[in-house]
Structure formats: C-alpha cells, structure tokens
Simulated assay, not measured.
Amino acid sequence: MQNKKTAGLLSPGAHEVAVDSLNQRYHVYGSGPVCLAMPGGPGVIWESLRAPALEEFLTMVYVEPLGTGGSQRLPSHPDGYTRERYRRSLMGLLDRLSLPRVFLLGHSHGGFVAQYVALHHPDRLRGLVLYESAPVTGPEHMAEAATRVEEFIHRNEGRPELPAALDALQSVGAVTDDEKITAALRGLLPMYFARYWDREDELRGFREAVTCTYISSRDGNGESDIIDDRATLPKLTVPTLVVVGRHDVICGPRWAQELHTLIPRSQLVVLENSGHLGHVEEPEAFAGAVRAFTESTSV
C-alpha cells in the first residue's frame, strides 16, 4: 500500500524522480496491479512499448531508461548503460514509489534487464514477463539472427521494398548518433513485423513515430558487455511468462524456447502472426496471455 507522500507518483501521466542522483522519467497509464515496463534497444523510445490493451487491467509504469528521452544521460554516454546500472535505476524507482512487489515486463533488450533484475531481486517481483528476449547476446545470438533474416528474405522475395530494409539493417553497425540510428531503425522496421508490407496502411504510423537514442553495448570502461545468463536462469524463482512472435528475427522462438526450458515452471506463449512487436500486431492475443498470467500469479 502506498503512503500519501508517494501516491501522486502513480497518478496518470508523466513523472520524474531523482534516483541515485539521476533524473528518472516514467509514464503511468491504466489501473490494477502495477507493472513496470522496460523497452528495448537499448535506446528505443518508451512509446514503442505502450500497450493500451494491458492498461485495461494493469497500472502500466512505462520507464524511460537512463540515457533516453527525458531521463538523464550518464557522464560516460553513450557507454556505461549496463544491466547493473539499469538494475540500480529500477530498484531506486520502486523504492521512491514505495512499491514492495510488482510485475516486471521487459521487451527485447529490456528483457535482458528484466531477467537480471529478477535474478537479483526476486523478493521485489510478483511476476516476470520476458517478451521477445533471449538468454545470451554476442556471436551466437547474431548468428541466429542472421538465419532468421534469411528466412525473412525468403518470405518477402520479390518485394521492391526489401532491398531498402536490408540496407538499413546493414547500416546499423556504423551508426553512432541519434539521428542516424533513428533513420536506420525506421528503415529496417518492416523486418520486425510478420507482414509489415501487407499491413502498411495500419502500421505506417508506428514506424514514422519511433525514435531511438544511440547507446553502445560497452560498459563504462569501453569494454564489450556480452550477456550469457544460461548458468543462472535455472535459479530463477520468480513466476515467469515468456512471450515470442513466431516470425521474430531478433529474439525468435529458439531463444524463447531456451528461456522456457531454463527457467523453472515458466510459461511459454507463441504469437503465431507476429514478429518482434506482438503488442502492435496481435494486441488482443498479447494482452490475453499477460492477463491470464498475472491473474494466475498469487499476490
């Protein structure tokens, strides 16, 4: 139960609090049990994860991760945005909100952060939703993504828009500023959907609105920050739902199945007509899976 001093911090709308001497911005929508939502990227705008269908039964607290949007940047920006740094920020936010236990939903890179938080603070979570996540980054993850991209190319062979999307994907590795990473993300975004070009009139607005901050995959010392949670995930005690789109090219079904196998008593839901953005492509199916999970999870 919140006290009067912090109750306003969960009122609808945008909020900003100081956490660990850094400004942390977040947005509140909906009603019901509280669910913190961590977007992907790292660096993708928080609105990309907004899911109104979840707001019908959850109080969604959409976090703007440090370094993005209205949240403060680290002195080492664009480096230093490790999971440990994000963990401290999220735990500090929970403390400021006087929330003892919440649901935590992480999308894509946000899933890597969410599982890290769950491993270190199981007592603070009612449940965990790993949405388009994976247990590992680095060469193995990239090789699987390359295979999935080839499948995407095969499914869309002959489409005149395909070469531009592939060019945008190839450009990502050379991008080091916000404007160019946003352009690259918008260019490759059709690959994040199961059938973007068949639904372009419906999905164009999402594509045109998405923005991204350039954040590196290096720690504060400039070293590569590779993730591999496969040894620790079997120790995870938080009730967990794993959600994946059948056609996701970035964190596809292979990784969802591996997460499901590694995490004791986890649940797995595959969205058959989605890519990386099932909350946009299949909002009712996505929300239905999350609702069933949250309602089945004991307080």
Rank of each mutant, 00 (worst) to 15 (best):
T211I: 01
R87Q: 15
Q267F: 12
F57N: 01
A143G: 03
W46S: 15
G158Y: 01
Q267N: 05
R195Y: 06
L233E: 00
F103H: 06
Y192F: 15
G187H: 02
P234I: 15
V299A: 10
Y81R: 08
I227A: 11
L9N: 10
V136I: 15
V63A: 14
A143M: 09
A287Q: 02
E16S: 14
E223V: 05
S296L: 05
R230T: 07
V242R: 01
R199Y: 08
V238W: 03
A165G: 06
I250S: 14
L36K: 08
A174I: 12
L49G: 03
I226V: 08
V269I: 09
Y26D: 14
G80D: 01
G173H: 15
Y26H: 09
A134N: 04
E132H: 12
R83S: 11
D225G: 04
M191D: 06
R148W: 03
V172Q: 09
P78V: 06
E161V: 05
H77L: 07
T82R: 07
L236C: 07
A289P: 02
A7H: 07
A289D: 06
F293I: 00
G245I: 04
L130F: 02
S11K: 01
E200G: 00
L74N: 05
S298Y: 07
S11Q: 07
H154V: 12
L262F: 02
L105V: 07
L97A: 04
S31H: 08
T261I: 05
D201N: 02
R207C: 11
V172M: 14
L259F: 11
E132S: 12
G275R: 02
H247M: 04
H247C: 01
A292Y: 15
G127P: 01
R195V: 08
I153V: 15
P122E: 04
A18G: 08
P239A: 13
S298N: 08
S71V: 10
M1K: 10
V102G: 15
P139Q: 12
V244H: 06
A7E: 15
V113T: 13
P39S: 07
R96S: 09
N156H: 13
L99T: 09
S11F: 05
R155L: 08
I227P: 05
L22K: 14
A118M: 13
P100G: 08
E64S: 08
Y131M: 01
F286R: 05
S224Q: 00
L74Y: 05
S274M: 03
R159G: 10
E150R: 10
L262T: 02
T6C: 03
H154A: 14
G187D: 03
G32L: 04
L203P: 02
G288Q: 03
H77K: 01
Q72Y: 08
M91P: 01
D177E: 00
W255H: 13
W255C: 10
E56Y: 00
V19S: 11
A174Q: 11
P234S: 11
V44D: 03
R230P: 00
G70L: 09
